[in-house]
């Protein structure tokens, strides 16, 4: 997800000057990009020491926090946008965090690997878990604790009463609006309460 084109495709969903909270912000590249190109401000949340250090190096505000402990530090609608980019698959309480995302943010943007992308389906048909550029891990050493599909997230959002403002796929940094559940390696949802 760190390739500049994908980052740019996601950044375009964030309004100019928005106040952004980036859940699982990694090395802070996305927030730095938003600050530099779109005049945004905000904070990243990270649990990993090396990533926290990388953020401080970049001059990006970072709060070291375990997302599985919740977002009680943040008030309702205190951010214009809450980003959850490639974070969902690492969280134990993914459903709670989805609700939290749109509680704290007026808009939540969720992006994660779409397990229903056709190469993954083919791999499963041959009886093996997929190993792809997007899901580069073996089943036994993956840091992802869950996999899900573009269609699945839509259903989960509905079940939690969230409004889907937009949803599409991303493949090779291009927006996929036709059959995203089949044709896109990354699923993107723009949600609100």
């Amino acid at each position: 997800m760190s390739d500049p084109h994908t980052m740019d495709a996601l950044a375009r969903l964030v309004p100019e000057g928005a106040r952004v909270l980036d859940l699982g912000c990694g090395d802070g590249a996305m927030l730095a990009h938003l600050q530099q190109t779109r005049g945004c401000s905000g904070y990243g949340i990270e649990i990993n020491d090396a990533n926290v250090l990388a953020c401080v190096k970049r001059g990006v505000n970072v709060i070291q926090l375990n997302l599985d402990e919740g977002l009680s530090m943040f008030e309702d609608a205190s951010f214009d946008v809450v980003l959850q980019i490639d974070t969902l698959q690492h969280l134990r309480n993914a459903e709670v965090m989805l609700r939290e995302t749109v509680r704290v943010g007026r808009v939540g943007i969720v992006a994660f690997p779409n397990f229903a992308h056709w190469p993954n389906r083919l791999s499963i048909l041959t009886g093996r878990m997929p190993v792809t550029r997007r899901l580069p891990y073996q089943w036994f050493d993956t840091p992802n604790i869950r996999v899900g599909t573009h269609a699945d997230l839509g259903i989960l959002a509905g079940r939690n009463g969230l409004t889907v403002l937009d949803s599409f796929g991303l493949q090779n940094a291009r927006v996929v609006r036709r059959l995203p559940n089949l044709l896109a390696g990354t699923s993107v949802y723009k949600l609100s309460r």
Partner: peptide
Amino acid sequence: LHNRRDVSYAEI
């Protein structure tokens, strides 16, 4: 955060 100040926090 409530006051929208720039802050970083490391929990070592």
